[in-house]
């Protein structure tokens, strides 16, 4: 379970949130500049809150007055907006980048399974600039999942895709979540996407949670 209770001063407002995520898909919805990416970055350790506490399954990522756990040790998958695939590496090398060399055979099998699930076998020898937007999204997902993360963060993962590919990828994300059973946090400003993907939806505005909805029951939690 992920528990996040943080405060962070941004130039125009204060991000002040308190949320918990079980093995479910949490969607953060809000207009641009409402602090969504700041929250993901704080969880990933790419940016630190001013104060608060972040824990994942009891493992402390951040706590007041303590040295934050480095990003490298948080075991988090992060799918960046526009995917941030390494342009100088083939798809295969991109996916294998974070895989530990110690369990090579096991890792190879895991990558093979991922690649098959996402249907990207034919792309392995290609470079990111040689593949389409939807394919990049699948490669980025495979790369983020290849390290077997305990939590997957997705920042506007479908914003660069056309509507048909977007629909396919939404279904794929749900399938992957059903298989991996780890918490997913998805950031979006598309309400339809939030309703389709989220088990729980949190609405953000100027760094504050304005509404939390349990999407499975349709009930407003607060």
């Amino acid at each position: 379970m992920l528990e996040v209770q943080i405060k962070k001063k941004l130039p125009h407002f204060l991000v002040d949130i308190n949320l918990t995520v079980e093995d479910e898909i949490l969607v953060l919805v809000g207009p641009s500049g409402s602090g969504k990416t700041t929250i993901l970055n704080a969880i990933a350790g790419l940016d630190h809150p001013d104060d608060g506490r972040i824990t994942l399954n009891g493992n402390i990522f951040f706590c007041d007055n303590e040295k934050p756990l480095p990003t490298q040790q948080r075991n988090i998958g992060y799918l960046f907006q526009d995917y941030a695939l390494f342009p100088h590496m083939t798809v295969e090398k991109n996916i294998a980048y974070g895989v530990k060399k110690m369990n090579a055979i096991e890792a190879e099998k895991r990558i093979e399974r991922l690649v098959n699930t996402l249907g990207i076998n034919h792309l392995l020898s290609k470079y990111p600039h040689q593949i389409s937007g939807g394919e990049k999204q699948r490669v980025a997902l495979a790369r983020a999942l290849a390290t077997e993360p305990s939590l997957l963060l997705l920042d506007e993962p479908l914003s660069a895709l056309d509507s048909r590919t977007r629909l396919e990828c939404q279904e794929e994300l749900q399938r992957l979540h059903a298989t991996w059973k780890t918490p997913f946090i998805i950031v979006t400003h598309d309400m339809q996407e939030a309703e389709k993907l989220g088990d729980k939806i949190i609405f953000l505005e100027s760094g504050l949670i304005t509404k939390t909805v349990d999407n499975r029951s349709g009930k407003m939690i607060c």
Partner: peptide, 14 residues
């Protein structure tokens, strides 16, 4: 692009 370096860090790279 700082996201490239950040992406590598999230994958555990020193």
């Amino acid at each position: 692009d700082a996201r490239m370096e950040n992406a590598a860090r999230t994958m555990g790279a020193s």
